[in-house]
Design a protein around this nucleic acid. Structure first.
Length: 566
RNA sequence: UGGGGGAUCGUCUAGCGGUAGGACGCCAGCCUUUGGAGCUGGCUACCUAGGUUCGAUUCCUAGUCCCCCAGCCA
């Protein structure tokens, strides 16, 4: 008897956690944290971190992951982001089990730790201007030099720091610095700023404080206070680790969290920079943070992505330390995989072409049985009305069909899904433009779908909608937001110039099965042969709006492409 | 030219001294009342040069290339 050993995700961080648990480090506890700053919305890159931190907590008995808002910069943060972030984390399927924290809750204790450092002679008030401080810091290759204020007495430092807190000085007049080593080859150790004066109202603490701790001070201490065992962050903080450890050690915390860094997620054809995302939204270059073209959690959600698909994706991209750019196809693959299993199929015509079945009796309507999901028998069946006048997809007809085009053409036959085999017997064109405006077909009554005697094979089956019964709909197709990989755009170029004017294609006058007329926002369906779609909140009574989450794989498109390449 | 990281199929990622595995992608075929899904087969990789070793992607040495750091952002 072989019991299947459930092999969850594995990576170097989980290896470290497992080893620590085995050795009894941290008393065998596993406490992680996801520490967003509430100055923007979460995106797919954060999802990677969320899946990692909450995932590790879930995988280890007694493990827990805290949600902590790293809110130490009052000028950029907003409570609306706090709410949205919680909502997004929950939507992704994770639970912080009541362990919701704010760095701002620790301001009082952080201040006390700073005083301790001053008393130990490990921190001092500096009164250099920002420019001067930069000069004193040295360069990458040259050591910095001590600030003239570095040798202030403990008493003076204590007094000045107290008065900074009391709001006696304007912004920028003084800062509190760690006294480490101005000649350190690691620039982060050249007396980093611990506190800066900011006469700004904080969204949670109001005007109680006129000085705020920096990340380098607040973060390690927040971790230590909360008993975090594994503080997982991205690569750019590697250089800060010695400082992180210094802060925890010098404030004499018995508990020492361990910082571990991994490579952040990069995705082809996706803007992941918080700054750029904000700018796109602020300048109204997109519809908002939940614009379906954005890789934000809210954008993906509105687009129709499922949390399961995002989590599966995060599991499959792995966790490592090398810089990497994951192809968007990978994300798309996992949504398709998930949606294929769960989406009800439905017929929808995006670009309608009228078809009259000449030999079908006028006024007759047949209710045909259609399978809701061939991947899931329990999804059952539904009924779709068939009548003499239909709409089919313009792309499913070619007057002059190229090689390997199996769909409708003059004299050719196709099956109408769940209905009959029809033959194209006439083409009506606009006398002015020559465009095909209507098709005439005949149907073979012997070929009704599912009929026992029905054996005939045709090369293609196409979808359709009965003209009389169809509901009108708007369909939004999405293409890459940018024409080029933004990482290749020079910093001095206006990156917004590379926006793809075709990133959103709005199709109106689309025809969908009548059953979709009142579909609720958030409803996900597969439009047969086309893709997965999700009902948008913009839908109005009677006319739903659909977002294309992702197209189905299109073998014909590929054939056509290689044909054209020849 | 300082410090910190990193280099394995086209793209992610495993491998921890016994000669490279998985996923995405791509190609071919089967199947199919979605040119979907599914199934089968195939494709391509250890940055370079030395060394240690019976044997190196794994260890050593020397290079090369890439990323991050000079915010009172995080």
């Amino acid at each position: 008897m072989s019991t299947a050993t459930p092999t969850g995700p594995s990576d170097f961080i989980r290896d470290i956690v497992a080893a620590d648990r085995a050795s009894g480090k941290h008393g065998g506890r596993v406490v992680t944290r996801f520490p967003p700053e509430p100055n923007g919305h979460l995106h797919i890159g954060h999802a990677k971190s969320i899946c990692l931190n909450f995932g590790i907590a879930l995988e280890n008995p007694g493990g827990i992951c805290h949600l902590r808002f790293d809110d130490t910069n009052p000028t950029t943060e907003d409570p609306a982001y706090v709410r949205a972030i919680q909502d997004d984390v929950r939507w992704l399927g994770f639970d912080w089990q009541g362990k919701l924290f704010y760095a701002s809750d620790y301001f009082e204790r952080l201040y006390a730790f700073a005083v301790t450092l001053i008393k130990k002679g490990k921190a001092y008030v500096d009164s250099l201007t920002a420019d001067q401080m930069r000069d004193y810091r040295g360069t990458l290759t040259e050591p910095g030099k001590d600030s003239p204020y570095r040798s202030r007495s403990v008493e003076d430092n204590l007094d000045l720091f107290r008065r900074m807190k009391a709001g006696e000085f304007p912004d920028g007049a003084h800062v509190l610095r760690a006294k480490i080593d101005m000649a350190s080859p690691n620039i982060n150790l050249r007396d980093p700023v611990l506190y800066r004066i900011r006469h700004a109202a904080h969204y949670r603490t109001g005007t109680a404080w006129s000085l705020y701790p920096s990340y380098d001070f607040a973060h390690p201490l927040s971790d230590a206070i909360e008993g975090i065992t594994h503080s997982i962050c991205t690569l750019e903080f590697q250089d800060h680790r010695p400082l992180y450890d210094w802060v925890v050690a010098e404030t004499e915390h018995e508990h020492r969290p361990q910082q571990i860094e991994f490579a952040r997620l990069n995705l082809t054809a996706a803007v992941m920079s918080k700054r750029k995302l904000l700018e796109l939204v602020d300048r109204k270059l997109v519809a908002g943070w939940d614009d379906p073209r954005l890789p934000t959690i809210r954008g993906l959600r509105r687009r129709g992505y499922t949390p399961e698909a995002i989590r599966t994706f995060c599991e499959h991209i792995g966790v490592a330390k090398r810089d990497a750019v994951v192809e968007m196809q990978m994300l798309e693959h996992f949504v398709r995989e998930d949606l294929n299993k769960r989406s009800p199929r439905v017929m929808a015509v995006l670009k309608p072409l009228k078809v009259v079945i000449d030999n079908y009796p006028e006024g007759t309507v047949e209710d045909l049985e259609a399978v809701n999901n061939p991947e899931d028998a329990s999804a059952g069946t539904r009924t779709v009305p068939f009548s003499r006048v239909l709409y089919i997809e313009q792309d499913d007809f070619r007057e002059d069909p190229p090689k390997q085009f199996f769909r409708l053409a003059p004299g050719r036959e196709v099956r109408l899904r769940y209905a009959y085999i029809v033959k194209c017997v006439g083409v009506v064109k606009d006398p002015q433009t020559g465009a095909v405006t209507e098709l005439h077909c005949t149907y073979d009554p012997e070929t009704k779908s599912g009929a026992a005697q029905e054996q005939r094979k045709v090369k293609a089956t196409i979808h359709w909608v009965s003209a009389r019964h169809a509901a009108d709909a708007e369909v939004r197709l999405y293409n890459p937001l940018f024409l080029t990989d933004l990482s290749k755009v020079p910093a001095d170029h206006d990156w917004t110039l590379y926006l793809n004017p075709q990133s959103l294609e709005r199709l109106t006058g689309c025809k969908v099965e009548p059953g979709l007329r009142q579909a609720a926002p958030g409803t996900r369906v597969q439009f047969e042969r086309q893709g997965y779609f999700c009902v948008d909140p913009d839908s109005s009574a009677g006319t739903p709006v659909f977002n294309r989450t992702v197209s189905l794989k299109d073998a014909w498109a590929r054939i056509e492409k290689t044909q054209q390449a020849r």
